[in-house]
Design a protein around this nucleic acid. Structure first.
Lengths: 208, 208
DNA sequence: CTTAGCTTGTGAATGATTTCACAAGCCATC
DNA sequence: GATGGCTTGTGAAATCATTCACAAGCTAAG
């Protein structure tokens, strides 16, 4: 398959959210224009995004909401449930572990790890926090496909190395530091400070 | 000023982080190549990013670390401290309110709000949680420049409307729903589900 | 003062993404 | 089954972002 731009994947995820809302409202079909409007983009963009993966609509009619939901789910790989481990049970890690929104979207938290002995053994919403020393053993057992790093900046690279060596191929990093991944591993970073700095730049430079 | 791409601003924030590390290590100068290597980009990219804002280096020598830090801080608008309010003191909101990393980067949390009467009046790391009904009054008093929304999806749009009407022009949204902003307001969204879906797509399609 | 060795700053070239614009196709109606 | 009113899917054009490539300029050494 031709390389797909990240912006396209991001928009597909967004379309999926609108389509689900649309379905809940009982609408059976939707046009690229309507979908674009909810997502703040253009109808041509919507059609182009979908065209990379096939042809899902009917000319003159638009898209069947139900079918398009299924198609986008398939494109994104969401027909299956993805097991996730959370590494670091501090404020952010604990908040994520207890956030129920994931389960409903096909992501299942199967393990939470921390070094702090006072946290190990505690329950977070039914999930027992395990010792970080057991990371490799437990990854072998639980076979998570994605790891979410919620550890301090200093610890992040070492833990990234450990989870990838143990076989995890996709990592979401919340630690406020850039990381280096081995080839074949996908890394995404959520960095609050960077987001705020982009806002500060916008305010400073009077952008809308 | 010519329009600056978001990707450029994001990289500047990244460069700033590396420069600070570099400074802590006692290095006085840095070349675009070295800076590029830490950030996983190219030297031409670094120079082009900076060239939008002026000329900060010396040919043959590179950049003075201290000076470049000051310059990038000025570009991003980080010479000043930016007052922030956090709306919603649930798991994520509380975690952010107690995260000290912001203060050290020039963002100061001046208020935290929630509707839940059992949370109002509680202290989060010295910060009293205020009633959401006082939002407008307190925004008028505290004059925050940025609002961070950590409320449930259903409540997000209404609160965005309230903070923008009260004069806030930059918003960071953690609610898992797309929002519409009035002209002149900058909105950024951090959506965990979307990040995970992009990872799921990468895993499904065998991308590196 | 001149040369050698670097590194910046920047137009030009390339590559990627978005937007345009329209033929092709579907449905409803007559 | 022909017409009109829509909407898709998609090459082509336009816009935006990155990379190339090199003149200009600085320092150090002789």
């Amino acid at each position: 398959m031709k390389h797909i731009a990240e912006s396209t994947v991001r928009r597909l995820s967004l379309y999926l959210r609108f389509l689900e809302e649309f379905e809940a409202q009982g609408n059976a079909t939707i046009s690229s224009g309507e979908l674009a409007q909810s997502g703040g983009t253009t109808s041509a963009q919507v059609r182009k995004d979908l065209s990379f993966f096939g042809s899902f609509g009917k000319r003159g009619l638009g898209y069947t909401v139900k079918d398009l939901i299924v198609s986008i789910r398939e494109i994104l790989g969401l027909q299956q449930s993805w097991p996730i481990v959370i590494v670091g049970a501090g404020k952010i890690g604990a908040a994520l572990a207890q956030y129920h929104g994931f389960a409903t979207r096909g992501f299942k938290i199967v393990g939470v790890f921390d070094t702090d002995p006072s946290k190990v053994g505690q329950k977070l919403d039914g999930m027992v926090v395990r010792a970080e020393s057991e990371l490799e053993k437990e990854i072998g057992r639980l076979k998570p496909r994605i790891a979410v790093l919620c550890v301090p900046a200093e610890a992040a690279q070492a833990l990234l190395d450990r989870v990838t060596r143990a076989g995890v191929r996709a990592v979401l990093n919340f630690a406020p530091t850039p990381l280096v991944v081995p080839k074949g591993v996908t890394l995404r970073a959520v960095n609050m400070a960077t987001e705020l700095e982009i806002l500060a730049f916008a305010l400073t430079n009077g952008a809308a």
